[in-house]
């Protein structure tokens, strides 16, 4: 099985961005706010794919770093400034920093042990959010003011505006992920995935490659968290529950691991199934519905949504900087 980063076609990408940007003009307020939350979740899933698909480190911790970003943005909003750019910067930095501290230990492990360690990290962050009073404990963090883009600017209250902010953060995060995947670091990450022993035999420390990838992915998940807070203006411990981590990992598989854009689409499918299809038409059967989606995916799209695309277009192999 060859997994490769999807190729960006400028015209197609532009069209997709225009369509995504037009959503607030086309849909009512509720679907637009749902779309904004999907974008935030999709960015978490992209960060999960950067580790799982590109670097070969399946992880359950990304929702935890998402939570760090979301709570940081909320705290900044309540206690310091409603400026969204400051909140984005602080949330991204805080998540990246925690990814560094926790990654120093976590990336020493690999495979199932790594998966378990990241599960523990995610649960730990979840528990902390659930217990600490200044984070609102189990009630969640409330009273977050609407964000602004510049000092004295209009607060972004309407769903269309917060959606656009989420779209901007999503595109920013996705671009970072693509740039990293195209870089020499991206090559090292794919090499770690394919054969860590060989990479060491070439003279490259796999530990360092893994750690840097872990920090970047954590920071991207943190950025996604700030986009979430900007829309919901409320963060609850339930947003970082284990079930969300599991859905993020499953979205990666559904979308096609290692392609970045595939998992973003997988995230949308999963989120829509749970929060729209299940909520409106099959009330109370979200888990069953998700189960059916995954079973169907395993049989119909063994290489994920992106795999279906790639095999149909039969792209020439991705050759990195030479392309």
């Amino acid at each position: 099985m060859t997994r490769r980063t999807g190729r960006l076609r400028p015209a197609g990408v532009l069209l997709l961005v225009v369509i995504l940007a037009a959503v607030p003009f086309l849909l009512a307020s509720y679907p637009v706010s749902l779309g904004g939350r999907i974008l935030a979740f999709a960015l978490v899933v992209v960060s999960t794919d950067l580790l799982t698909g590109v670097t070969g480190m399946p992880t359950l911790a990304q929702v935890g770093y998402f939570g760090v970003g979301a709570y940081s943005a909320g705290l900044v909003g309540i206690h310091w400034t409603d400026n969204l750019i400051v909140q984005l910067a602080v949330g991204t930095l805080a998540a990246g920093l925690l990814a560094l501290v926790t990654g120093v230990v976590a990336v020493r492990t690999a495979g199932i042990v790594f998966l378990m360690v990241t599960l523990a990290i995610g649960e730990l962050i979840h528990q902390v959010a659930d217990r600490l009073d200044f984070l609102g404990a189990s009630n969640g963090l409330v009273g977050i003011p609407a964000g602004t883009l510049y000092p004295g600017g209009e607060p972004l209250i309407l769903a269309g505006y917060t959606y656009w902010w989420a779209l901007l953060v999503f595109l920013l995060g996705l671009t970072v992920a693509y740039v990293v995947a195209k870089s020499p670091l991206g090559l090292s990450m794919r090499a770690v995935r394919e054969s860590p022993t060989r990479l060491r035999a070439v003279g490259q420390s796999t530990y360092v490659v893994r750690l840097v990838a872990f920090i970047i992915a954590g920071a991207i998940a943190g950025a996604a968290g700030t986009a979430w807070t900007a829309q919901t203006r409320f963060v609850s411990p339930g947003d970082l529950a284990f079930s969300v981590s599991a859905l993020a990992l499953l979205s990666v598989v559904l979308g096609g691991a290692g392609t970045l854009w595939g998992p973003a689409i997988g995230a949308a499918v999963v989120f829509l199934t749970r929060d729209w299809l299940a909520a409106n038409y099959f009330t109370g059967h979200a888990d069953l519905l998700l189960g059916i989606v995954f079973v169907l995916a395993v049989f119909l799209l063994p290489r994920g949504i992106a795999g279906y695309q790639l095999s149909r277009r039969s792209d020439p192999p991705h050759s990195g900087a030479a392309a």
């Binding site: 020499p184 670091l185 090559l187 090292s188 990479l199």
Partner: peptide, 16 residues
Amino acid sequence: RVGVERTEGQPLRPWP
């Protein structure tokens, strides 16, 4: 490339 990047390049540079 993985080998060349290690000896002559910057295997950890996160941008092209």
